[in-house]
Design a protein around this nucleic acid. Sequence first.
DNA 1: CCGAATATTCAAAACGCTTTGGAAGCGGAT
DNA 2: ATCCGCTTCCAAAGCGTTTTGAATATTCGG
Lengths: 352, 352
Amino acid sequence: MATLKDIGAELGLSAATVSRALNGFPEVSAKTRDRVRLVAKRLGYRPNRSAQRLATGRSGLIGMIVKLRADMSADQTFFDVLTGLTAALSARDIDLVLAVDQGDDPIAPYARMLERDLLDGFILNAPVPNDPRPGYLRKRGVPFVMHGQDRATPDYAFYGIDNRAVSADAVALLAALGHRRIALVNGEQRLAFAAERAAGFRAAMAGEGLPLPARFIASDLPTESAGYTAALGWLSGRAGPRPTGILCASVPLAEGVLRAARDLRLSVPGDLSVVAHDDALPHRPADRFDPALTVTRAPMRDACDPLAQLLVDHIQGAAAAALQIVVRAGLIARASTGPVPNGEEAAWPRTT
Amino acid sequence: MATLKDIGAELGLSAATVSRALNGFPEVSAKTRDRVRLVAKRLGYRPNRSAQRLATGRSGLIGMIVKLRADMSADQTFFDVLTGLTAALSARDIDLVLAVDQGDDPIAPYARMLERDLLDGFILNAPVPNDPRPGYLRKRGVPFVMHGQDRATPDYAFYGIDNRAVSADAVALLAALGHRRIALVNGEQRLAFAAERAAGFRAAMAGEGLPLPARFIASDLPTESAGYTAALGWLSGRAGPRPTGILCASVPLAEGVLRAARDLRLSVPGDLSVVAHDDALPHRPADRFDPALTVTRAPMRDACDPLAQLLVDHIQGAAAAALQIVVRAGLIARASTGPVPNGEEAAWPRTT
DNA sequence: CCGAATATTCAAAACGCTTTGGAAGCGGAT
DNA sequence: ATCCGCTTCCAAAGCGTTTTGAATATTCGG
């Protein structure tokens, strides 16, 4: 394995100059930089990470902790994010150390990882309302970036979508089509994004002057069967006038809703309009549904590169306040939404 | 952060001696070793990994690559193994770097990881028959340990169960109970363990002198619904005389088989005996089934610690041939197996 | 009590990189 | 010629460990 000294010897340069040349420092002339690069490539030079780390004090490793559910399964989205993240990180010469958490204490696994102190920072995911992790990590002085937010305006570095706007945009679309009875099949209540979506939904409905009985917001795992169950209850009409529009927090939920509609011989969008939020996971394209789904869309994959960059910047000293990215999800109208059915223009009664 | 020198200064010792004392070298007296340990603890000393790595030339990191299925899901067992593995490794001061593979080339992701050369070794899982990875990694001179085997007697380091024996033991049990028509719901055919189980099954049936039409070995994902589908086909009797015993490669498969029996009003073990292989994943205990499942049992968790140890030994220079562990799965007879039903003692016809 | 053997400890080198503090070379202004 | 300011490079000092080779205590047999 070639070292800096080897390259230097070959060119009559010192290791220091070679180091600077390869790292693109300005105080080395373009000509020698090119010569150095050439020889480095010829010798197949690759920097010794351990040495770099010892010299810089950084490890080049960041940590991520997977929270498992009781059934030992993880988020459907987990692997998708993991894939993109490892790619984005390794483009920045960083590797990901993974740990698994099965316990109740949300910060214990972070403490354990810190104790081994080899990490430059963390990526957090799946924030819950009032997430305790940011406070802990800041106290320990460890850089981190959150995928998502635990509240509307956090004080830490994060990349997330505007979840209230997701609901607001969907409601606005349906309201514009004349819908007055709109329900929400939300994701897991314990997660912050679900709380934000619900809050945004309530606010938007209120903004349109539409009553919203509490039972028309469902919260469960984001699975097909959860969507089916919730929709079947509402659409059967036993809970009161059935909704003419349903917002779904995920594509699998929407799949269940569509199946419920089919089973009840309701046409979509004739009798029921469906809007889903689409994380753009590759195995379930929303535009291939029948009917093609109208969605609010924010690909999970898009988060990976910004997350990696934010963390790198943070580790290099940038302030958290400067490292906050909120993106607005797009709205793509397809075939699953249409005008409110005739005779169904009444809102829900105000007191239920 | 305290260093070796700090500790040495405190005691009037050199950093070298402190290093030896902490690493338990014999040439340091017991008394000073204790003094050093005491001060180290008091100062909260923890060795600087980067420095250790630079000095030893090892990184303290090992890699593992998750192979995702097309639907972006991983093995049910994956997280269970991952959990145990990170625990077993961190007890040995090693951390796990994870990468995700979605491509077709089985070795490309390993090549990519090696290129970043920060790993001391790999843990491989889910071997397929004639797995190309061992050959590649040996050629590159990288230590690795396989969880499982791609053939009966590989030449690399591994920890696995005797999959032929798993089938043989189960067949022996059922044959002893008088069963002559035994079928196998196997796992994914592309995986080596499934091939071994099938081979063991065929050999055992032949050894008992029992004919075995090819259609009575099913291969699919190890899910409840795959078990249901396969069993329903066989038990309906349309494919010929129904089996009186079914071997299942996993507990979820057995769950599906039991459901099929229930749907067909067949009693277990009155009309049908069921034996499953139990990896002892925590969320689905085989003894809580109704009837409690007779199983061949080899907890996945048991593999983690040996795997970690094997890899550590391998990295420290032990020969692969000395690092091979085959365990025999246990056989636990419970309520899902019983004597062959009256009038069902005939074997399958020999030519079908 | 002496010399040899043994048990401890130390100083220094090495690992390969980054970074600091100059130094040399060069052109242009004085 | 002298001085100054740039540019470009270098030597050397770390970073915190492990490891080597040697030096210094300690012990033991005689």
